[in-house]
Every structure is written in C-alpha cells, then in structure tokens.
Amino acid sequence: MTTNQDEFVDTSSDGRSASPAPSMYSFSSSVDGRTMLREAYGRILNNQNDTYFLPADNEEHRRLDLQHQIITLALGSLYPAPNLVRRALAPRPGKTAAILDVGTGSGSWAIDMAKQFPHCSVVGVDLAPPRVDGDLPPNCRFEIDDANLGFSHYRESFDVIHARSVSAGIRDFPQFLEELAQALRPGGVVLLGDGEMQLYDEWQEPLAYSTQGSSDFSWLHSVFFAGYNAMKSRGGSVDSPSMNPTWLRNIDAFTDVGWHKVYIPLGPWRCGDERELLLAEMLREDCLRYIAGLGPYLLSEGYFPESVEMMTREAATELRELRVRFHTRWSFAWAVKK
C-alpha cells in the first residue's frame, strides 16, 4: 500500500477516530485529504495549526527523510538512551508494546521503528499526512492530530513516545510534556530531539547576532535569526531544546532524566573522519532545503518577497561555497515514567 497526502479522513462525529488509542483522523485510501492542507506563499502548509508554518509538501518530506538519516547516523541508532528504550519495548507475555511518534513528518522514524520492533504497535501522528512510498509495515499506522489539543485520548497507551523537531509547532512545551507523561505507561520512556535555531562557531561557541556591514556578518546566520523570531512570533516553543531536561525534572511523573548534545559541522569545512564528513555534507543539503522552506514564516511576518529571495539566496551561496564555519547543535533529552 502506498500512502500520500490525499488519503486521510475524519471517521468520528467528535473529530477523533474510532481506532484504538484514537487520534483525530485515521488513514483511509478512499477520501481526499487535501482539506488538511492549504497552499500559501508558494508552498503547501498544514491546515490545522497556524503556529507551525514550515511546509507540509513532498519537498519538505524529502528533507525530513534526509534529516532522519542524519540524526540516525549522528546517534548511531534510531534513538538515544538505547538501553531504556529496549527495556521498555521488551516482549512481554499477553502485552503488546506500543510506540507513539509525535510530529512524525514523513513517517521515516515510525516506519523504521516498526521494522526494528515488529512485535510493537507504532502510531505516527502529525498535522498533515505523511509521504510514504511502498508498503507500510503491518504494525504501523498514521493519524492526523494537533499535539496542542492534548493527549487525553491516549492515556497510558504507550511504552515509548518520540517527539522530534516539534518545538516550532508547540505553544506550551511544559504542558505538552505533561500530556506525554499521561500518555505513557509506567516504565515508559519519552524521547525528545530538536535542532537549535542558535548557530555555533567553529569552536562550538554560540554566535552573537551581527548586522549587515559588520566584519562577521553572515547571511546564513541572519536567515536563522529571522526564522527564529518568526517562529517565536507565531507562538512556537523554539527555545525548548535547551530547556527540556529542566522541564522533565520538574514533572513528578518522570525519573532518570538524561540529556545529550551533538554538534555537527554545517558543511564539510574541516578535515574530519569519513563519518563526520558525510554528516556535514548531508547537513549542508538539509540546511539548504530548510532555509528554502522558511519562506512562509518570513513572508507571513511582513518581509518583502524580494528580500526573502535575496536573503535565502545569499545564505545558500555561503553554504555551498563554505564561506562560513558554523556548527549546528542537536539536543536530545529523555526520561522514564515512574
């Protein structure tokens, strides 16, 4: 079975499906899902949540597929805290372990987890239909939901909950974490991961903002800064990656909180080993696609189209020609439900 962005349907009168651990919409191959999408500023966006304004089209899903490969290579696994995850998902007589992927995007992580843990049930939820080529694993399904609405319908339904790159679409991240805690079964693990909008220099120190004309001005940094402000303006929790460990510790339901940071060069500007060079090259390509996708955010904040075109073009040139030596930092956090 091949799924695409035209195959989702509301199957219940109250807006949530009748499937186990139901979300808002369940997969259906017979109904047009374009009502969940809209065209704006030259891209296809979700039609459920005005906070999250990155595209939801096939081009963006291909970028998310690439990002998934980058993170998997950087971690050496599909997930951080592997011992905790494997313990939570270990087969048990009379029980089917369950995994929830919040903000599933293209669905890559959910599908890979379904393949790695065939005895588990995997549910991926997002604001828009995923792009899935080929047959889905029989233990994997996708549903449409807005995490800002809460997860009371998922109470104690999952053993692992994964939420990656969702901060721009979450309005109240501490409350979101409370909801995830309620959706976990005792002993379950929550996994968080997000790339920061803050860029870092070649020594992995945070870059200070500089204005055009200064000696250290960068168009790439300027675009990231503009994107950060646009996401904040729309209500996104873009500062959450660095705050997640603290917020997790503040929730009584959680224990064994951990945190891991990964710095990746933004392009192959230094001599590293083969793995680092591959990561850097892949991340450069991901970033080129990412800054192209920031257009709706910037245009919706009042930037003129010609300004957005110029900013993103110059930023892309810096990346392609390795004019800047920057790192990005990915922050991962996890916790176990008591």
Score class of each variant (00 low, 15 high):
S77M: 08
Q69E: 07
L73N: 03
P55Y: 05
M36P: 01
E59N: 06
S29Q: 02
G33F: 00
S29D: 03
S29C: 00
H61Q: 07
V31F: 03
A40N: 06
I71K: 00
G42S: 05
T35F: 03
S26Q: 08
N58M: 04
P80L: 05
P22D: 10
I71T: 11
E59A: 14
L37K: 04
T72F: 03
Y79M: 08
N58G: 09
G33W: 00
S28V: 07
I71L: 12
Q69L: 09
T72N: 14
E60L: 06
S28G: 14
F27C: 04
Y41C: 15
A56I: 04
L78E: 10
N49I: 12
F27M: 10
L78N: 14
Q69A: 13
N46T: 09
R43C: 12
Q48M: 15
D57A: 02
L78T: 13
A18E: 14
L75Q: 07
L75V: 10
Q69S: 15
M24L: 02
S77R: 11
F53R: 14
S23P: 04
Q69F: 03
R43G: 09
H68G: 15
L73V: 08
S26C: 09
G76E: 01
S77H: 06
Y79N: 10
A18V: 14
R63F: 04
Y79Q: 02
P22M: 06
H68Q: 09
Q48G: 01
Q67E: 08
Y41R: 14
D50F: 04
A18S: 12
E59K: 08
R38I: 15
L73Q: 12
V31C: 05
I71W: 02
S19D: 08
A56W: 00
Y41A: 15
S30G: 11
A74L: 10
A21N: 10
A56H: 00
L73M: 11
